[in-house]
Amino acid sequence: MRFSSLLELGKLCEDESMSIGQLMITEQARESEQSSEAVFEQMAGYYGVMKEAVQKGLMDKPNSRSGLTGGDAGRVKAYADHKVPSLGIVAARALSYALAVSEVNASMGRIIATPTAGSCGIIPGVFVSMQERFGWEDELLVHGLFAAGAIGYVIANNSFISGAEGGCQAEVGSAIGMAAGALTEMRGGTPEQAIHAVGLALKNCLGLICDPVAGLVEIPCIVRNGFGAVTALAAADMALAGVTSVIPSDEVIGVMLEVGSNMPERHRETAKGGLAQTPTGRKIMKELDRKGPST
């Protein structure tokens, strides 16, 4: 790849008059010595899996293997369709779709890691709901996934994308930044606006710890995916309105690295702190241990 920071990414897009998504397709084709068409096809296949996961989560209402979670996506969808959500129907749908994919994930169903499985609901939640709303062709969404991937590539190489390394800010936070930037671009924003959306979104996630109850990708991961989709919509709206990230987005990514590196081990996916060690969290863990191995 010819870029390692968002600043460089934005400059390349400007110099070559390309969107972030287009630029990433050509970069990926070069890196993998494949045609742009082949690279595009693979991503299009991934988008198909995302849409299936949204449908599966809403229709099948899968329960997790532990039995702790499941059905919340359906609850929110029914509420969005038949009641008056404070968020409005659009954001409420994004929320329910994100929950749906995360519930499929917890049931050991098929998803696309974006960037990880723990954060796999956010991008599909945003993308599928916005496709429905604006009647976009798949092609635009696949371009959007490349834009999201370019942003994630910079975050991953300058900070981290796993909860074990950098806390939930690294997983859910990265996904929100990726979704926000990609949505800004899909809505017609410039690369510069898209990059501001990343910084705006990440600032709202700094310090978020990874404290899964019993170590499972369920509590609080699933609801955080729902919140994440809504946050991404908000960040994209701010960027499209002309709000900028006064602290440049690359510097915000640097802060994520600083905060994550200083996060104690108990708040990095070990289930030794945070929500996992509340009285209820401990009780749930004990009950699951009593039930024995998942196999």
Binding site: G45, A106, A113, A117, G118, V217
Partner: peptide, 14 residues
């Protein structure tokens, strides 16, 4: 890009 978007996988944890 596919180390960021992807893999296609069975959950729950990448």
């Amino acid at each position: 890009v596919f180390s960021i978007i992807g893999p296609s996988m069975i959950g729950p944890s990448s």
